[in-house]
Write a protein that binds this DNA or RNA. Structure first.
Lengths: 233, 233
DNA sequence: GCAATAGTGTCTTTAAGACAATATACT
DNA sequence: AGTATATTGTCTTAAAGACACTATTGC
């Protein structure tokens, strides 16, 4: 026990995903301070003395999006702790969280007033983020893709009321595949507790109006909705 | 930025699972120091200055079991950071790791010489562990149960060479269900890259000798081996 | 032969996938 | 009517589950 114990500061970084105009987007902020000043990064914040890291993440989420975290999906992705991931001292270790939001009006430039904005995930990955946020983003998106198979989180991308067509689009955009619409319809309506009809209908520009649904009580999908495995062509 | 940043110490705690005599067991240590002196706890250790937390976990694992972590399953379960989870100051936050080991001879009471021993998970949960380790253990076991469905981690419970009967027992013990042996046999032999025959056979006390296999190259099972969902009777 | 464990065959049931057909709106 | 979108029907295929049956050992 003679070896010194490393003390660190802890942050919660958020990967907030949403779908805008059929494109998967992530909320990014432009850093105002060093290190990486001016670069794009994931939003995040430091752990405070009276809270758990999960609470830190929930607080940051509501600061960034204005939504209360109670109703949003918020899930740990993992801990990122490479010694050189952040040049600051004491060492900064982060726990990444995945959050899923409906298509919000815009990230309210809150009291914090950082320049937060939605960026297509593909662009974020192309341009490169600060710290090890590229790796975090990649892991979080991969987690979302996997979770879509077994949990009812897809509804978190939609508003309170949504159509099966919208839910269908969520799966297609995030998985990057085409799914048969009739089969998808049967699958989600027959899955117990996934979605429940509200009674209303939403008119379409031209075409039959779609039945409206809201998220049901279930959190898991059984049987799961397996992502089509790409044929190893 | 006027609010003080909380500094913490970080630990990696290990949930090392194995199967002994058909019972799922976890490695526990008796604590020598306060807090919780004399109580049973999960093994773990503090982050050092030159390593990542994943490396801390790998180091602890090889110290406790004598196995090199390269070959063992080692996976983050989550971060546990409730402000009052540990009375020490500065605050102690832990990241729990799930490790899976074959039936080792015995935890070598290594240089560390703590009294480490295998304890059936059910007993550990009944008697209660130090800190929030009951919660960590529960989460880790639940993660193992889920991962068995989609990844090839079941082979990590077996030695280098094993029979399909042994693999079958792994699933039955961890899921706590009976699985049809003929169907299980077909399932695992037809799953690509899950197990490969070594060519050898293992004699049984009395009965037909079983073909020996070793772990194949695949890490994921496709299609997955879904855990039978308990009929909501 | 008998007991015991490993492994195969076959039938049934369930879920997934392809895709035709119908329903309900708007212009 | 014609177009567009939603929803239902039907057939085919793949996987899961039940369980009878065969195979190979020791005694």
């Amino acid at each position: 026990m003679s070896r010194p114990r490393q003390t660190v500061t802890l942050t919660a970084d958020l990967v907030i995903l949403t779908i805008r105009d059929g494109v998967l987007c992530v909320l990014v902020v432009e850093r105002g301070n060093e290190p990486f000043a001016g670069r794009l990064a994931l939003p995040g914040g430091f752990l405070r003395g009276d809270e758990s890291l999960d609470q830190t993440a929930a607080r940051e989420l509501s600061e960034e999006t204005g939504m209360n975290a109670e109703k949003l999906v918020l899930r740990q992705v993992g801990v990122y702790s490479a010694p050189d991931r952040d040049p600051r001292r004491p060492r900064v270790v982060t726990c990444a969280y995945l959050a899923i939001a409906p298509d919000l009006p815009l990230p309210a430039a809150g009291s914090d007033a950082r320049s937060a904005r939605w960026l297509p995930v593909a662009e974020a990955q192309r341009s490169g983020l600060a710290f090890d946020h590229d790796e975090i983003l990649r892991d979080a998106v991969e987690l979302a893709r996997a979770e879509l198979q077994f949990r009812t989180i897809a509804t978190a991308f939609c508003g309170d009321e949504f159509t099966i067509g919208e839910l269908h689009a969520v799966y297609e955009v995030i998985w990057g595949v085409k799914l048969d619409k009739p089969n998808f319809h049967r699958k989600v309506t027959e899955s117990d507790g996934f979605i429940v009809p509200t009674g209303g209908k939403r008119p379409t520009p031209n075409g039959r109006p779609a039945t409206l649904y809201r998220a049901g009580g279930a959190t898991t999908l059984s049987p799961p909705m397996m992502r089509p495995r790409s044929t190893g062509a």
